[in-house]
Design a protein around this nucleic acid. Sequence first.
DNA 1: ATGGCCAGTTCACTGACTGAACTAGCGCTG
DNA 2: CAGCGCTAGTTCAGTCAGTGAACTGGCCAT
Lengths: 182, 182
Amino acid sequence: MTLPSTYADRNCSLARALEVVGERWTLLIVRDAFFGVRRFGDFATQLRIPRAVLTNRLKSLVQEGVLIRDEDAAGGVEYRLTAKGIELWPVVRALMNWGDAFYSPSGVKRAVRHDQDGGLLDHEGRCQDCGSVVPIPEIRIERGPGFDPADSESDPVSDAINTPRRLLEPIMAVRTPPAGQG
Amino acid sequence: MTLPSTYADRNCSLARALEVVGERWTLLIVRDAFFGVRRFGDFATQLRIPRAVLTNRLKSLVQEGVLIRDEDAAGGVEYRLTAKGIELWPVVRALMNWGDAFYSPSGVKRAVRHDQDGGLLDHEGRCQDCGSVVPIPEIRIERGPGFDPADSESDPVSDAINTPRRLLEPIMAVRTPPAGQG
DNA sequence: ATGGCCAGTTCACTGACTGAACTAGCGCTG
DNA sequence: CAGCGCTAGTTCAGTCAGTGAACTGGCCAT
């Protein structure tokens, strides 16, 4: 973390957690990672975050073991959630629930389902159809009734994110338009 | 919120929630409120937060309906969680759990119990003794195995907070020593 | 009136965020 | 191999928020 001496209370795990994910942008980066964003440029365009800040945040998150940085064969760089990062899902979910409850009068902005049977998940992450606690990679996220397309950007990354998909599934933003198209 | 245009994504309840509680210090103020802190000076000393920042944060939280500001008969000011603020408990709990899991090797820093029967609560807030989902005011919080007294400040407010107590129960920092003493 | 307590303000300083432009590595194409 | 585009960053000047300490002003008891 960039700050010299952050939160004083050494006996508070909330303070400790906030030192890792409490800075501006950080949890949104983590959210995007859950939604399948993996590339520097995709984070930058989707979040409209200054690239310098993104660099810092990704560095901290890698250093803290929340993300892992991979260079693929072509020299491309990928940031993916580690097991520790995936454990942040309850945090992301709790904040989403609260935001939905108090700032989205027409219903949740994103619905969360069990990919296997389509059952809705309750707040504890349990499938209301099969009753099991759904593992993160089996969670499907899709638009809910509160989702307003007019509020959404239409860059390829946002489009990909707003398509129903399983968590952690990498997005496939169309980078190379098919030949024969104008 | 102080920032002119905060997070871009209007279709994300996480971003929306972070506009309210995502700034530095804010969630720690909310945590303290759960722990029974109600007075400006108590927040300031316990969190070691600059008073100017505390003023801003309390103002935003009141404006957002997370806290309510009360002036008692004596002109004293109290900040208390509203129902909306109390709904932030899952957020606070999720972050605490994550911090405990990854930064407190000797066990949780604070244990969370059902005050009625002393049963430990699981991550969903369910009492492992009686099986019920425990309402917030019936939750007792106390030191856990990971709590290290050496790491703790010994101001009256911290002392009060580190004493086993029910959530939302106001702290009684000793302000007026009983007559006939000293 | 005096002094203490409390809530909140003021102020100079520092440091992080912002946005835009720039650099550098790599693969492709001509 | 030159030139181009794509990607992952870095640099930089300007701005704005956080920091810490000192100060104000209301209220109460002495």
